[in-house]
């Protein structure tokens, strides 16, 4: 006997919905569960698509070495975190990086250019692990959800990802896969909806 595709689809949907329901106990109705769940994941995914993009991840290293380029190679010339996330004593981020992109040299820049603190090392982590670190005050710079939203939607260095300037060879740096406006909305929605980290 052949099972109609529609039944297979329904069966999967029901299982999926039950699964979602089981994981969101506060939500009481079938309809809302489905909608909220979908949106929540969508916001989370968009946010994570950005956070895991090289424009963001290159400055959240796990080995204290900033990365460069879409291949995330180690920063040339042996630059590293140093004592205060700004490189070494005399040769630091600001030796080359200023508060805005340099279109002559191709050196990127933004206000308070620096590595994210070591506690915010995301490189090599799963999306869920990144989200956990993001929400954990002990690893996020003691930020509340409100402060996190502000940081992620207003900070010049975060938003630099959408105006990353040109490489030394004159070519544009690639942008994160989600637009700046969509990212901001996604971050706001995700936090507004309780900053739930979907399970795998």
């Amino acid at each position: 006997m052949k099972l109609q595709p529609i039944y297979i689809f329904l069966a999967i949907s029901v299982v999926g919905l039950l699964f979602a329901w089981a994981n969101t106990p506060k939500i009481s109705t079938y309809e809302i569960v489905a909608k909220e769940s979908q949106n929540s994941n969508d916001d989370y995914d968009k946010m994570m698509d950005v956070l895991t993009h090289p424009r963001c991840m290159n400055c959240h290293p796990s080995d204290h070495i900033p990365k460069q380029g879409d291949d995330s190679h180690p920063h040339y010339f042996g630059m590293a975190r140093g004592e205060d996330d700004h490189g070494f004593e005399a040769t630091n981020c600001n030796t080359c990086h200023q508060s805005e992109n340099n279109l002559n040299s191709g050196v990127p820049g933004a206000p308070h250019w620096a590595l994210a603190p070591a506690s915010m090392a995301w490189e090599g982590l799963t999306r869920a692990e990144i989200a956990e670190r993001l929400l954990d005050k002990s690893t996020n710079g003691n930020r509340s959800h409100k402060e996190l939203v502000e940081h992620m939607t207003e900070d010049d260095l975060v938003l630099w990802a959408w105006e990353p300037g040109i490489h030394a060879n004159g070519e544009q740096r690639t942008l994160p896969p989600v637009s700046k406006e969509d990212f901001k909305k996604a971050v706001e929605n995700w936090f507004a909806n309780g900053a739930v980290i979907p399970s795998k």
Binding site: N94, T95, Q98
Partner: peptide, 9 residues
């Protein structure tokens, strides 16, 4: 502070 002046407007 040391600055690389080719990249400093």
């Amino acid at each position: 502070e040391a600055v690389r002046s080719c990249s400093f407007p």
